[in-house]
Design a protein around this nucleic acid. Structure first.
Lengths: 236, 236
DNA sequence: CGCAAACTTGATGTTGCTCAAGCTAGGTGG
DNA sequence: CCACCTAGCTTGAGCAACATCAAGTTTGCG
């Protein structure tokens, strides 16, 4: 479950990690020297809201979910993170959300202690983290707009487009959706049933086609974009 | 409307700005030397989503709103910012939200160019910005939970408690609420009418009392906290 | 004093939630 | 290899919360 980077996983290309990218090779070496590779099985917990923030992680492969809970169990997923994303920055000393693996996940872990040293000693390292965090903040603001002001159809359509974009290829007709309907619902601020019904509507409208359980084919991207933008159904 | 810090507003205590706080006096001097004080009247725009991100601002006094718009005009306010908050960090080069003054606002402005130099030259400056941004991210995640999973009553109660906390004194029975019902609605993902009705309900339940238009007195803080936590009305 | 903007209140409508079955796919043991 | 079992998903019917539409009322300002 836990492997020293240097010892057991020599095939990871560290130069491509968000933490190392762009730094001269020697610097990248210093950064990766203080990191540890780690694997998590689907469903496994990385840390929970309120835990001591002892580590920072970068996702190397796989998908995980970040979420917050209300006392009565209502859950809001604040993000799905795939390769290249960083999680666990917590200036207050405790994590402000919980993190769990959705698929099998490979992570690069940095101890808080090591991280502080990197920030002190490597010029530009803190700034790199600032850039990454600013991007997360931007994503968070987009999601606020979605949660607060979009309809169920707009939410689901936006979600599918987001997944498609994340998987690069604009031509990615087949999108992999590794998370369950429950996860999608808790991400979009909807119920499972509404998500399911909306998928069905998109299928009936020939906008998407549901292949295997975790695969969605985007059949009519233009229409999907119209739905996401709120032009849905009004002008047909 | 626009004043050189050194010339027209010598009474601002720069050592207390989030950008300067904690740095030795000489460093703080360097930071404030590249900044400009600026005033905005209520309703005035600082910048809009998509504009070139030429400046970073720190709020010195007053309150402003950040928001995003959908093409059809639906608005989501992503945050209300008061003294000490920083806005305008945009690694992509363009602002990802719009910013407007709610009250009269005093700002400390840094040009992008100056900011980059500060980050390069002052050790710990990028890290300071990272800390501030991490806090914003945390607030954003709290708001996602609110938008996605709380009821109207929980939202309004949480909002009032947030305003009270922001104004320091836990004993702050009288809370100043400078923003309009429309702003509150767009912040909470509700309509004006629902916000108004919820205020009325809280008033009828003797949880708050509405004094002047922009003043709310918290009469029963315990009950307000119960409402915010979702225990509302069930056990009375 | 009069006007406009902001807010409140009421009546009605609609979206998405709840509760309750059914269905399907993938895994397991006989 | 197949029948069964279960978790995850879909579908349906009814309902509640919040939105919409439409007046009123209050407040602050010229």
């Amino acid at each position: 479950m836990l492997a020293q980077a240097q010892t057991y996983a020599p095939r990871i290309d560290f130069a491509k990690l968000a933490t190392c990218r762009g730094f001269p090779q020697q610097t990248a070496g210093r950064i990766m020297a203080v990191s540890t590779l780690e694997k998590k099985a689907p469903g496994q917990n990385l840390f929970s809201e309120g835990d001591n923030a002892d580590n920072l992680y970068e996702v190397v492969s796989g998908t995980l979910r970040l979420y917050k809970l209300l006392p009565d169990g209502r859950r809001q997923i604040t993000g799905f993170l795939c390769a290249g994303h960083i999680l666990g920055l917590a200036p207050e000393g405790t994590y402000v959300y919980s993190a769990e693996a959705i698929t099998e996940v490979t992570l690069c872990r940095y101890s808080r202690r090591a991280l502080e040293r990197l920030m002190d000693e490597i010029p530009g390292f803190a700034r790199r983290l600032l850039t990454v965090t600013s991007h997360e903040l931007r994503a968070a603001q987009d999601q606020m707009l979605m949660l607060g002001r979009k309809t169920a159809l707009e939410k689901v359509a936006s979600f599918l487009l987001m997944m498609a974009e994340q998987q690069g290829s604009d031509e990615a007709v087949e999108v992999s959706v590794p998370m369950s309907r429950a996860d999608i619902a808790d991400y979009l601020g909807l119920t499972i049933e509404t998500v399911s019904r909306t998928f069905t509507k998109l299928k009936v409208d020939r906008v998407i086609s549901l292949r295997a359980r975790n695969k969605v084919e985007i059949v009519d991207r233009d229409l999907l974009e119209q739905f996401a933008a709120g032009d849905g159904d009004r002008d047909i």
